[in-house]
């Protein structure tokens, strides 16, 4: 039951990743096509900070971070756990992946929050 639930979440986060990663690509990599501004302009410090101060961006980026990390690390866990290993080693793999995921999520959230609360000119 637990594995079914984890697998279901792996599938359920896919639409979130497709929509939000698509938006991320449009803003950061295809700005000339979608917004009529150069990539350099879309990525300069002031523009990046200005975008990062929006509540919607804060929420959506944290959501993308959580969804992509879960999807990616669950997939990685599946690949690693296919290798011949004892149940004890399997537990170590699971714990390490959860630890890595939580660490990267906390770090990514902190960077997003830092951008959101950045004081321009201060």
């Amino acid at each position: 039951m637990r594995e079914t639930r984890l697998w279901s979440w792996h599938l359920l986060v896919i639409p979130i990743i497709i929509v939000l990663l698509g938006a991320h690509f449009a803003v950061m990599h295809y700005a000339p096509v979608f917004y009529g501004v150069s990539v350099e302009e879309a990525r300069n410090f002031e523009t990046m900070i200005e975008r990062g101060k929006s509540v919607a961006q804060l929420v959506l980026y944290v959501l993308l971070l959580a969804a992509a990390l879960y999807h990616g690390l669950y997939g990685l866990r599946g690949i690693i756990r296919e290798l011949p290993m004892s149940p004890a080693l399997g537990k170590i793999v699971d714990t390490s992946i959860i630890g890595l995921g939580l660490f990267i999520f906390a770090f990514g959230t902190y960077v997003t929050w830092w951008t959101f609360s950045f004081k321009i000119g201060g």
Binding site: F45, M48, L69, I79, I104, V111, T115
Partner: peptide, 19 residues
């Protein structure tokens, strides 16, 4: 999939450069 997850982890660290 493995390439994307490896890149994603690096990307989060690299974008922290803004700080």
């Amino acid at each position: 999939g493995m390439g994307l997850i490896a890149y994603m982890l690096l990307h989060i660290i690299e974008t922290a450069n803004r700080m």
